[in-house]
C-alpha cells in the first residue's frame, strides 16, 4: 500500500532479465494536483469561503430570483432607450475600433520587414493596454470627458482596438506572401501591395473578427452604466438600489435574449465568412 503511494510520486527503476536497467518517466501530474489543491485552499482562506453561510443564505438567493419572476413588463417603456443606447454604443465602438485596427495591424505584422523598434514598442504597449477591461477605460473617460454614452463608446473603441489589432496581425502573419512579392515586382507601393495582395486574403477573417468583437462588446457594454458611461447599466444600478426586482428581472431577460440573438446570428455569419 505505502509502496503504491510512493510509486505515484517517485518513478521506479526496473532491472530486466538481460541486466538492462529501465527507468520510468518522471510524472509531474501528482505534484501539480497537490499544488493546485493547496493553492485552492489558500485562495479559499483569502476569499473567506464560508459554506455554512452559503447554505444558510441560499434561500435569499432563490428569493431574489423568485422576486424577479414575473418580470415587470410595463418597465419596457423606460428600458427601450438605455437598451438601444447599449447596443448602439457597442456597434459604434466596435466599428471605430476595428476600422482603426485594420490599417494598423498591417504595420504591426512582422512579415513586411518594417521598423522593428516601432513594431515591438507598439505591440508591447497594446499587450499592456489589453489587460485592462472596458470598465476601467469607461471610469477614466467618464471623468475626463464627462459621463454619458460618449465615454462608453470611446472606451469600447479602445478595448476593441487593442484586441482586434492582435487578432489581425496574427492572421496577417500566416498569409501567402507570394501575391505581395508579385505586386511589388510590378512597381506598386507597399500600401497598394497590402491592399491588393494581403487584404483579400484576410477579408473574411476581418469581418468575422468585427462580429466577434461586437459579441464581446455587447456583453461588456451592459455594465458600463455602472460608472456612468451610458447604457442599461445606469438603470440596473438604480433599480437594484430601489429594490425593484421585477424591473431587474425584465432587464436580465432582455439582456439574455439580446446576447443569445446576436451570438446566434454572428456565429452563423462568422462560419460563412471564414469559409468564403
Amino acid at each position: 500500500m505505502i509502496d503504491d503511494i510512493l510509486h505515484i510520486f517517485f518513478p521506479r527503476t526496473y532491472t530486466l532479465g538481460n541486466g538492462k536497467v529501465v527507468k520510468e518517466k518522471f510524472n509531474w501530474a501528482p505534484y501539480i494536483t497537490i499544488a493546485v489543491i493547496v493553492f485552492s485552499i489558500l485562495c479559499a482562506i483569502a476569499t473567506k469561503v464560508d459554506i455554512p453561510r452559503l447554505i444558510q443564505r441560499s434561500n435569499a438567493f432563490w428569493d431574489l430570483i423568485r422576486e424577479m419572476i414575473p418580470p415587470n413588463w410595463s418597465f419596457w417603456r423606460d428600458l427601450q432607450k438605455p437598451m438601444i443606447d447599449t447596443i448602439v454604443m457597442s456597434v459604434l465602438g466596435t466599428v471605430v475600433g476595428c476600422l482603426i485596427a485594420l490599417p494598423t495591424s498591417f504595420y504591426l505584422s512582422s512579415n513586411f520587414e518594417l521598423n522593428n523598434v516601432y513594431l515591438v514598442g507598439h505591440r508591447g504597449l497594446l499587450s499592456l493596454l489589453r489587460t485592462l477591461p472596458t470598465l476601467v477605460y469607461a471610469q477614466l473617460l467618464s471623468i475626463v470627458i464627462g459621463t454619458g454614452t460618449l465615454a462608453g463608446t470611446v472606451s469600447i473603441s479602445i478595448f476593441t482596438y487593442t484586441i482586434c489589432v492582435k487578432m489581425l496581425y496574427e492572421q496577417i502573419e500566416t498569409v501567402d506572401m507570394g501575391p505581395y512579392e508579385a505586386l511589388q515586382s510590378t512597381g506598386a507601393s507597399r500600401a497598394k501591395c497590402m491592399i491588393k495582395a494581403i487584404y483579400p486574403q484576410i477579408r473574411g477573417y476581418f469581418w468575422a473578427t468585427v462580429l466577434y468583437c461586437f459579441e464581446t462588446n455587447v456583453r461588456s457594454a451592459a455594465i458600463l452604466g455602472y460608472v456612468g458611461a451610458g447604457g442599461i447599466g445606469v438603470q440596473i444600478n438604480e433599480q437594484l438600489t430601489w429594490r425593484r426586482y421585477g424591473n431587474t428581472g425584465l432587464m436580465v431577460l432582455v439582456l439574455v435574449i439580446t446576447v443569445v440573438i446576436i451570438e446566434t446570428i454572428s456565429r452563423e455569419l462568422r462560419k460563412k465568412l471564414v469559409q468564403g
Binding site: 476569499t47 469561503v49 464560508d50 453561510r53 431574489l64
Partner: peptide
C-alpha cells in the same frame, strides 16, 4: 450583484 445581495458583499 445577486450573490452580493443574498450572501453579503465580499470576495466569497
Amino acid at each position: 450583484i445577486m450573490f452580493v445581495k443574498s450572501i453579503g458583499p465580499g470576495a466569497f
